[in-house]
Write a protein that binds this DNA or RNA. Sequence first.
RNA 1: GCGCCCGUAGCUCAGUCGGAUAGAGCAGCCGCCUCCUAAGCGGCAGGUCACAGGUUCGAAUCCUGUCGGGCGCACCA
Length: 615
Amino acid sequence: MSDVKHALRTAFAAATKHLGIDPGEIPVQEVPAGKPGDYGTPLAFALAKALRKNPAEIAASIVAAFEPPEGVLRAEAVGPYINVFLDPGAFVAGIAAGAPDAEPRDRKVIVEHTSVNPNKEAHVGHLRNIVLGDAVARILRADGYQVEVQNYIDDTGRQAAESLFAAQYFAQTPPGEDASEKLDHWYGRLYVQLGEAKETDAEAIETGVRDTMHRLEAGELRREVERIVHAQLETFWSLGAEYDLLVWESDVVDSGFLARGLEVLEASPYVSKPTDGKYQGALVMDVAEFIPGLEESTVVLVRSDGNAVYVAKDIGYHYWKVGIFEGLAYAPFADQPTGSTLWTSHPAGEAHPVGQTFAHGQEIVNVIDVRQSHPQTLVRAALALSGTPEGQEASRNTKHLAYEVVTLEGQAMSGRKGVTLAIDHVLEEATRRAAAVVAEKNPDLEDAETVARQVGLGAMRFAMLKSEAKRIIDFRWDQALNLQGDSAPYVQYAHARAASILRAAGEAGVDATAADWATLGPLELTVAQQIARLPEVRAQAARELAPHLIAQYALDLATAWNAYYNHRGEDGKPDTPVLRAEPGLREARLALVAAVKRTLADALALLGIDAPEAM
RNA sequence: GCGCCCGUAGCUCAGUCGGAUAGAGCAGCCGCCUCCUAAGCGGCAGGUCACAGGUUCGAAUCCUGUCGGGCGCACCA
């Protein structure tokens, strides 16, 4: 909510007082193009019933009592709507001064994302998870939260075991650091081959995989899994994602989180160990009160053979995340591209390196695909059943950001069958395509390689973020790597244009200090109104965990700016030059351009997309 | 069978928690660089907002039902 909108709410409320009725929350919105005024409210509709008068009459009487706040010229009743006219100069001057950062919240959010099985290269299905999680983390941080990002490593699962056993089965030696094929790709290939070999040698393979799972649980293969994780991290980093902590499933189990979580749950009246019937010998939880409408509300936590199911581990992990118990130890794992240290849970680590706990999240965001909705609900139910006040609170504050799958040219992807598209390949191709366009459009560009990477990666990230998470994305090369239209390059180009003007202004020695704001008009105002929206859009995106709102906003602002840039007067000639404008007007427009550039860059940054100075 | 999600232009999607003539991009057609980057801009054409009821001054948006599509519901992970 911009300051002006806020001031208008107050002013409308005051102007409504004489009617003797509480209008409640007053909506203030941008006036549609073609209607008189700049901001307006449909407030009169809401009052019409109680006052038993027609809305237009009410609007007129509110207008009569309206005292314009600073920067607002006057109000006018447009039928039942009450619209106000802004002073363009004052408004743009306010925008040029910049928007304040969000208030720090002193509230910690743990965002869990990526969590790719450590047995193969990441593909475009994972790409959506990584980019979505990374964008949400950035947005929450910008909205004032303290954010920590965790990446869960399922190192005791079947998939890791299959890949590691495949090397043994095919008597292959994993490549070293300097090999031409990345280690994660290498294992991914063998993983698929093992799947094929199962058709003829199922029993031997099953025995080998089981044996490997035991070795994984015993920690014997940790070093090799770490090498795979390092290889995967190269991909994640190249996308611009970084993490605070890796949490290994084996460490979660070794730290006793599974056992302690079950202990907590056993005290709950909803958890029992039936001595007869279908669930004899198992530990089960009744979730009927938490998930209404289930035919079968009994969930098994520990099988009658004594083995815990997967969700039980996840429950233990979440009890730790929200601070019901402690116990992980940590060690540094890697230095990340921007210089931050990535930590990992580790059996031989220390409890509180640099005073960090990595737990005690007051809000939990789990970026996991929609097919995991059921187990996620079980985790939330288990938090509520913990019998602790933290658990109750945590259950409410744990959010599952459920995103839909990515299909490949209409086909479901399958890591098992090798029907995938590796992120590394897509990024390479995206950069190649961007480089070709750069070479064509701007052959003299310095740092063409860097720009090509920024544009190619930007296009990829934007393609994953511009629609709602619940929308299925069908990955198609020409759409995902689109460099025009509704895309990151469109926004980046708008930014580069603004940068270009500011660069030329700097060379000409023009700066914004001599601005004559009174020379500005409705064209500048329209752009400035778009700029003013970012803080409220950002707040909404944070509230709803919806990066697509930022992407759509960035497109809107770029469109408004491009339209302004290309605007022509009635004579058909450009009428919005900046540097060629009269002194005073020139400086005022320049200040607007600076605000456009800054805001475009800010919006892109929330999506993890770089804004090149030239392209 | 039960639960969740989706159905808006030929295609891919927005649609400001119920408001003003339903907006973009791609595809099609027509224009715009003696002017700060044409990866751009302007225009034309294209929609019974799946369907039927209901609530409301007002519904793409809320409620109910129907149809169509996707996903989930194991002592799997």
